[in-house]
Design a protein around this nucleic acid. Structure first.
Lengths: 157, 157
DNA sequence: TAGCGTCGGTCTCGAAAAGAGACCACCCTG
DNA sequence: CAGGGTGGTCTCTTTTCGAGACCGACGCTA
């Protein structure tokens, strides 16, 4: 149980990773973004053991990243992305950009194209104030409200 | 060995995840981006078992994401981000954005600010042609050269 | 030179997680 | 009633992980 306690740390990278950071979870979400909704489809597309898939889907539902429901015609179960889950898309696209750049010697296996446009989807890191593109070197960390709240809670508790 | 074979699939999300998708790897890289370079610093900052850290660092060095070298003053070992590793930053920032949005009830623990600017670093998904901002709904997958090369190789082999 | 601390790194061992595959109840269809 | 598909569970084996002792090399200092 030590590892799960990392989720208590005041860090917005660590906390998601405790949920998403394992062998299968992001792959399951990749499938979900590709339109997969059914248990058996996830299972056969990924080759994941069924019990493992069951664990992961349950955890994603717990965290309200996926929603489990009966299909509209009522004859099977569906796992669909919630709004919160949908917001994960930039993470997968950032991974894809890196994969294309560094693990695709023959070029991108799949283009992710803008609907009705010749362009491709790209993740960019930029300043939300001046709009300038940024890299890690341009970034300076600074304490935010979540950290102060965490310190206060620690002082009280 | 089944799981590692996922890296052979022609998918630029799957392939990086086989390397990055575990409990610790992205956390180690987060520390690296925060300036950590030394074995013991990674270990004590994260609380990761030493043998595990050793595995992960070795794998990251194998994949040329980190570079292992003697420090300039020669008295200790350093693990530094390569260019390839440096390019992972948007992934961590995309995770951080999601964490701020969905797992930080008290607000962001840390602001990632643009140096010499009031702004914050933000990851955005946009079309590289028309510049329009996009979500998962605006994206259409299309076969690329890497997929064709993979199919050809399969047909030959 | 003996003692001590720190460095990156290794080894062992018990606990936890993952993988495989059989098995299940349910529903529908022929 | 048989057959196939559904989501899901159970069991057993293998792999991975976690905790912590242990190691040699190095630098310092008494």
């Amino acid at each position: 149980m030590r590892y799960e306690q990392l989720a208590d740390l005041p860090c917005s990278i660590t906390r998601p990773l405790v949920v998403l950071g394992d062998r299968w979870t992001l792959l399951i979400l990749k499938e979900a973004f590709a339109g997969v909704r059914r248990f058996n489809a996830f299972q056969s597309n990924l080759g994941i053991p069924r019990s493992r898939l069951q664990d992961r889907l349950a955890r994603l539902v717990d965290h309200e990243i996926l929603v489990r429901q009966q299909a509209v015609d009522g004859d099977h179960v569906e796992y669909r992305l919630s709004r919160k889950g949908h917001d994960l898309y930039p993470i997968l696209l950032a991974i894809k950009d890196w994969g294309d750049a560094h693990m695709a010697p023959d070029g991108p296996p799949v283009h992710y194209r803008h609907r009705d446009c010749a362009g491709e989807a790209r993740v960019t890191l930029a300043c939300d104030c001046c709009g300038e593109r940024m890299t890690a070197h341009d970034v300076v960390p600074e304490a935010g409200p979540g950290l102060l709240a965490h310190v206060d809670a620690g002082a009280r508790g």
